[in-house]
Amino acid sequence: MISIQKYEKVQSLEQAFELNQGKKNRIIGGMMWLNMGHTKVNTAIDISGLGLNTIEETDEEFIIGAMVTLRQLEQHESLNSFTSDSVKNAVKDIVGVQFRNMATIGGSLWGRFGFSDLLTVFLAMDSYVELYPTGIVSLKEFSEMKRDNSILVNLIVKKTPIKICYSAMRAQRTDFPVLACATSFVNGEYRAVIGARPAKAKVVLDNEGILDSGITEETATKFAEYVAANIVTGSNNRGGAKYRKHLALVLTMRNIMKLGGDRND
C-alpha cells in the first residue's frame, strides 16, 4: 500500500518540476496501482489542474495532453480515423472501462512499461513527446531515455500520412498482452513495433527493403522473419521467449498483410 505524506495540486509546470526534484516526491498520473507495492512518497504532485486533459487537433498534428485518459483516446474519432482505429484497438482490451477512464497517456508512456500497448502503437507513428523543461524529443528517443525528473507534458502525433495496424495476443481478454505488435508505413518506411517482449517495445525498420517490391504473402513472411530475428524476447509467467518470437512473426506477418490490403484499396 502506498504511503503519501503530502498532497500538492500544482498551479504550473514550473511548480511541478521544482517539487519533482525532491527524491521521494512523485508526479501522479492516473494513479493506477496505488495499492501495489509499498512505495513511500513524500509529496504527491497532482498535475490534474494544468489543463493537460485534452486532445488538440491542428492541420499538422494531434497534441495529446499527458492527463488524457485511455478512454478519451479510445473514443476520439478523428485520431482513430487517422490511425485506422489502431489506437482504439490498442486500448480497448486494457482491464476495463473504469480503468481506462483513469489511466492516462502520460502515466502509461512515462513508465516505459514493457507491457504497454500504448507505447507500442504510438512508436509506430510519427510521434513525439514534449518534456518540461527538456523540450520535444521523438517518442523513440524518449522510450530509450532513462527516467529523470522532467515532466511529460504532451504526446504529439504528426499527421504524416500513415497506414497502420495493431494487434496483440492476450491469454485472457483484459490481461496484459503476451505480445503486442504494431506495423505501419509512414515517411516512406515500413515499421514493426514489438511490445511486451516482455521488455519495452522495440522498433524494427525494413532496412533491407524486403517490402520494397510490394506486399505479398512471401515478402510479408520474409519481413516478419526479419523482425522476429531482430528482437530479443524473454520469458515470464505469460509466455516463454520462444513463443514470443513465434508470435512476433505471426502477428507481424498478419499485420503487414492487412497493411497491404489497405494499400490496394
Binding site: A171, V178, H246, L247
Partner: peptide
Amino acid sequence: ITPEQIAM
C-alpha cells in the same frame, strides 16, 4: 492448456 502450449 495455454495458447503457448497449443501453438508450440
